[in-house]
C-alpha cells in the first residue's frame, strides 16, 4: 500500500510531530516500502486465531490500593523544562 503525503501529514498531526515539507516526501517513500513489507501478513489466514495480547501465563497483578510513596513534589518537578515552585508551566491554553 502506498502511504501518500496526505496520510503522512494526517498521521503526523495525530502523533503531534511537526514535519518539514521535504521530510514528508521521504517519509512517504519509506513508509510505503515498509507497509509493502508488512502486508506480507495478508497471505496468512487468521480468522480463527485468537490475538495474542500477553505472552505471560499469569494475568496482570492488581496491587492493594495503598499509598506507597508521596510528598515528592520537588523530585517530580526536578526535571521540568519550565516550572514554578508548585507547578509545571506550559504555554497559555485559555485566553
Amino acid at each position: 500500500m502506498s502511504i501518500d503525503k496526505d496520510k503522512i501529514i494526517h498521521t503526523s498531526k495525530l502523533a503531534r510531530i511537526s514535519l518539514e515539507e521535504k521530510k514528508v516526501d521521504s517519509l512517504s517513500k519509506d513508509l510505503s516500502n515498509i507497509f509493502n513489507f508488512i502486508e506480507k501478513l495478508n497471505k496468512i489466514k487468521t480468522d480463527d486465531v485468537k490475538p495474542l495480547t500477553s505472552i505471560l501465563d499469569h494475568s496482570l497483578r492488581a496491587r492493594d490500593d495503598q499509598v506507597t510513596d508521596g510528598s515528592i513534589r520537588e523530585k517530580v518537578l526536578g526535571n521540568a523544562p519550565n516550572k514554578n515552585e508548585e507547578f509545571f508551566i506550559v504555554p497559555k491554553v485559555i485566553e
Partner: peptide
C-alpha cells in the same frame, strides 16, 4: 516537553509547543 526532557522554544500555543518539541 512538559514534565521532563527537551522542550522547543518555538510555538505560539500548547499544541505547537508539543509538535515542535517532538519534531
Amino acid at each position: 516537553g512538559v514534565k521532563y526532557g527537551f522542550r522547543s522554544s518555538k510555538g505560539a500555543n500548547l499544541i505547537e509547543m508539543y509538535e515542535n518539541t517532538r519534531s
